[in-house]
Design a protein around this nucleic acid. Structure first.
Ligand code: ZN
Ligand code: ZN
Length: 116
DNA sequence: CATCAAGGCCAT
DNA sequence: ATGGCCTTGATG
């Protein structure tokens, strides 16, 4: 699997997507200590394995675009992983299905946007 | 006990 | 600040 952020070959599952060890570390650091840097190219840098350290702003943006999830950052080693499965009760059918955490959040979002 | 993935460590 | 490798806690 290749890193979805920079294209590095040695990508593994991290924070809900596939990325390399360096992008994983970068994403975590950047989120935890809120290190910010401004892009000089109008936030339009293409990220590759060779230029990824040039613009950390665009790199972080790319991380979010390809789906690295900040909610998977625990901050401490002790914290439990998020369950990626949740049970959904289907109204009137008395049935239950298992859906992913992602889908659960989507559904919750749709629900909150309903006009009742 | 084996595997997965997050955090910690530390040389660069 | 970066990134490779190690340790750890959860899980089946
Ligand atoms: Zn990467
Ligand atoms: Zn940039």
């Amino acid at each position: 699997m290749e890193c979805r952020v920079c294209g590095e070959l040695e990508g593994k599952p991290h924070y809900g997507t596939v990325c390399c060890a360096s992008c994983k570390a970068f994403f975590r650091r950047r989120f935890l200590n809120n290190e910010k840097k401004e892009c000089r190219n109008g936030n339009r840098c293409e990220i590759s394995a060779s230029n990824r350290k040039n613009c950390s702003s665009c790199r972080y943006k790319k991380c979010l675009e390809v789906g690295l999830k900040t909610e998977e950052i625990r901050g401490k080693r002790k914290c439990s992983p998020l369950p990626n499965i949740t049970t959904l009760a289907i109204p009137t059918s008395s049935k239950f299905i298992d859906i992913s955490y992602e889908d659960a959040m989507r559904i919750a979002d749709m629900y909150l946007n309903l006009e009742l």
